[in-house]
């Protein structure tokens, strides 16, 4: 297993962030969304509907403690305590195991809502490429889902599949994208969809003298055409945006754009927080609806 290997090429940076433009939360309504995914977890805190703080970390061995760790890290240095948050929505794979959440909402609904905030109301098609799943979502101008499709059965087209390749080629995961774009001529995509077979194929290509860059290009390109087929099945309409960890991989993003002939909207936020952000937005709406929207710090 990769966890036992001496060098961990798959590892990405965990961090937290606080909005410097919001000096204080006291006197405002504070809501939160916690997205416990299979691979990564995020907590987003909003103050009166504005992004205030978030954390992004790797999911631990169980969902409840991952949720607690994520929210604590997001609250770090803000002076906030759990009781200051008027409403929390849990989402993601571990959504029913967020001990302090007031409600669980599916990640599909949260992603659409979060993307509507991140990219604006013109976004219609969303591709979320997560650690162990891939989602295609079509939504309306309010961020409400009109159709969706999710694939969490197969590692092809997921962050996990990319991690397998990063380990195989001993390339840090955050460098995969740029390396794959450094090839002079685009090679044919890896032909196997299955990650296991693609790995065998890649080993053969390396043996045949291909450079790491070329093999990565062939894999990123295969991943791109695979996810595009999911988008096309679900309905593809402009504007288009990509979220999730793989959205940070320029090698996959550029190739998706090339196949579709459409540029993805450029993110102003971390692409991994879309689900948690949507959760915090749902939390705000639900808090107002149920009149639980107490004002923090009073």
């Amino acid at each position: 297993m990769s966890e036992n290997e001496t060098k961990e090429y798959w590892r990405w940076k965990e961090y937290n962030w606080k909005n410097p433009d919001i000096p204080d939360w006291r006197g405002s309504m504070v809501t939160a969304g916690v997205d416990v995914g299979s691979t990564s977890s995020q907590a987003v805190i909003m103050v009166d509907g504005q992004l205030y703080a978030f954390s992004n970390m790797r999911t631990g061995s169980d969902s409840p403690s991952s949720a607690i760790d994520a929210i604590n890290w997001a609250m770090e240095g803000t002076g906030l305590a759990l009781e200051d948050i008027s409403f929390t929505v849990g989402t993601g794979y571990g959504r029913v195991n967020v001990p302090f959440a007031n409600k669980a909402v599916t990640e599909i609904a949260c992603h659409a809502r979060g993307a509507n905030f991140m990219y604006g109301p013109t976004v219609r098609t969303l591709l979320d490429m997560g650690g162990q799943d891939c989602k295609a979502i079509h939504c309306d101008e309010r961020g409400k889902v009109t159709s969706f499709l999710m694939n969490d059965k197969c590692a092809a087209g997921t962050g996990r599949g990319m991690e397998v390749f990063a380990n195989l080629l001993a390339v840090p995961i955050e460098e995969v994208g740029d390396m794959s774009l450094s090839v002079e001529e685009e090679p044919a995509p890896v032909s196997s969809t299955c990650v296991v077979f693609a790995k065998t194929e890649a080993t053969g290509l390396l043996r045949a003298g291909w450079s790491k860059e070329k093999v990565l290009a062939a894999y990123c390109s295969a991943m791109a055409s695979r996810v595009v087929s999911l988008l096309e099945r679900n309905g593809m309409e402009k504007d288009f945006a990509i979220t999730g960890g793989i959205a940070k991989n320029s090698g996959v993003v550029k190739r998706i754009e090339r196949i579709l002939g459409i540029e993805a909207l450029k993110p102003n936020y971390d692409t991994q927080i879309a689900g948690a952000l949507g959760g915090a937005l749902f939390a705000k709406a639900l808090a107002e609806k149920s009149n639980k929207g107490k004002i923090a710090g009073r």
Binding site: F148, M150, K153, A156, R233, N234
Partner: peptide
């Protein structure tokens, strides 16, 4: 909403 439940793997697309 059209909810597609299922998956795509190497052998094809299986969605209800």
């Amino acid at each position: 909403m059209i909810a597609n439940h299922g998956y795509k793997d190497g052998s094809g697309e299986y969605y209800i």
